[in-house]
Amino acid sequence: NSLAEAKVLANRELDKYGVSDYYKNLINNAKTVEGVKALIDEILA
């Protein structure tokens, strides 16, 4: 998966839960796919 794909999928996942734009910005600023995954795990914990 590319970083861009990971960000799109992460933001879709956040949308399902009604997560605020603050967290979407964190996702969009992530530098690695692993970073995106770690943020998602933390946000949805």
Rank of each mutant, 00 (worst) to 15 (best):
Y22P: 03
A38N: 06
V19C: 11
G18R: 08
K31D: 11
S20P: 11
N29Q: 13
A4M: 09
I40K: 09
A45G: 12
G18W: 05
K24D: 01
D41V: 14
K31C: 04
V33T: 04
V19K: 06
D41K: 15
E5Y: 13
V36Y: 01
K24P: 01
E42K: 14
N25A: 14
S2F: 09
A38W: 14
K37N: 08
L26E: 04
I40F: 14
K7R: 04
G18D: 07
K31I: 10
K16H: 06
E13W: 14
L14E: 00
V19W: 09
K31N: 11
E13K: 11
I40S: 03
N29M: 12
A6V: 09
V33W: 08
L39I: 13
K16T: 06
N29A: 11
K7M: 05
R12N: 09
N1I: 15
A4T: 10
N1F: 15
L39A: 04
Y17Q: 05
N11Q: 15
K31M: 12
K37W: 15
L9S: 08
A6P: 00
Y17G: 02
V8H: 11
I27R: 00
D15M: 13
I43H: 02
E42D: 08
K24G: 03
D21W: 15
N1E: 10
T32M: 01
V33Y: 07
L9Y: 07
K24S: 04
L9T: 07
I27L: 06
G18F: 09
K37M: 14
A6E: 04
V33D: 02
I40M: 15
G18L: 06
V19H: 07
I43W: 09
Y23W: 14
V36N: 00
D15C: 06
K7N: 01
N25I: 10
L26G: 02
L39F: 04
S2A: 13
N11C: 09
K31H: 08
N25D: 12
A30Y: 02
A30I: 05
Y17I: 11
A10C: 04
A45Y: 14
G35L: 13
K7S: 01
V8P: 00
G18S: 07
D15S: 12
N11A: 10
N25L: 12
N29T: 09
K31V: 12
A10L: 03
S20C: 08
N25V: 08
K16N: 07
G35C: 09
A38L: 11
D41N: 13
K16P: 03
S2N: 10
K7F: 02
K37D: 03
N29C: 06
E13Q: 13
N25P: 03
G35V: 13
E5L: 14
S2K: 12
K37R: 13
V8E: 15
R12K: 12
I27Y: 01
L44E: 03
K7A: 02
A30G: 03
N11M: 13
A6D: 02
E13S: 07
E5K: 10
I27W: 01
A30D: 01
L3A: 01
K31G: 08
A38C: 09
K37H: 10
S20H: 07
D41P: 03
A6N: 03
I43E: 00
K7I: 10
